[in-house]
């Protein structure tokens, strides 16, 4: 009789371990997906701020059409980009186009002092920070997941459940640096 209870206990324990690992993988994968959408949210916010900025700048700067056009183009590329890698790349392009605009604004004291302009500039900088943080968290989440699925005993369960290692979001260049617009 006692033996039956022992066997039952062991079976239950094994079932719990199997369940634990299944849930753990699922939780970590959900976190990865969620952090990916967080990057999306922030990029979209950025794209939404641009038209406003363009309007404001246009009111003061009449002749710098090419710089303004570059920003508009970059925004278009960002909005239509598919997949997070392309989106982040498009965002980097937008970032450098914005730098030109902010450099041009240097020569226009009225624009520089315009509260709306300042506000937008600050918003853009803070969304850029958030994009960077969202990417950092995305990679952190992948690291946690990969650590679990490539080390024992997690690796055994990963194989069992067909969970594969995930790729980090790798985009080179001076991406970590926030925009430094000095006045």
């Amino acid at each position: 009789m006692a033996l039956i209870w022992w066997i039952l206990g062991v079976v239950l324990l094994i079932a719990i371990i199997f369940m634990y690992y299944y849930n753990r993988f699922q939780v970590l994968l959900n976190r990865i997906d969620n952090s990916l959408s967080q990057i999306d949210v922030q990029l979209k916010r950025r794209a939404d701020l641009i038209p406003n900025l363009i309007e404001t700048v246009k009111g003061f700067v009449k002749h710098e059409t090419s710089a303004i056009k570059a920003v508009t183009e970059a925004r278009k590329a960002l909005v239509s980009a598919k997949g997070v890698v392309d989106k982040v790349k498009a965002d980097n392009k937008l970032e450098s186009a914005l730098k030109t605009i902010f450099a041009i604004a240097e020569g226009y004291p009225d624009l520089k002092a315009n509260t709306n302009f300042l506000e937008l500039q600050r918003e853009l900088a803070s969304t850029e920070d958030k994009v960077a943080y969202a990417r950092q968290y995305y990679n952190d989440s992948i690291l946690t997941y990969n650590n679990l699925s490539t080390t024992m005993p997690g690796a055994f369960f990963a194989k069992l459940y067909g969970k594969k290692e995930r790729e980090y979001l790798k985009i080179t260049e001076a991406e970590k640096k926030p925009v430094n617009v000095k006045f």
Binding site: Q38, S126, D129, K130, Y133, A134, Q136, Y137, D140, S141
Partner: peptide, 8 residues
Amino acid sequence: EGLTIASG
């Protein structure tokens, strides 16, 4: 907000 994103 940025930090909550970074830390989840």
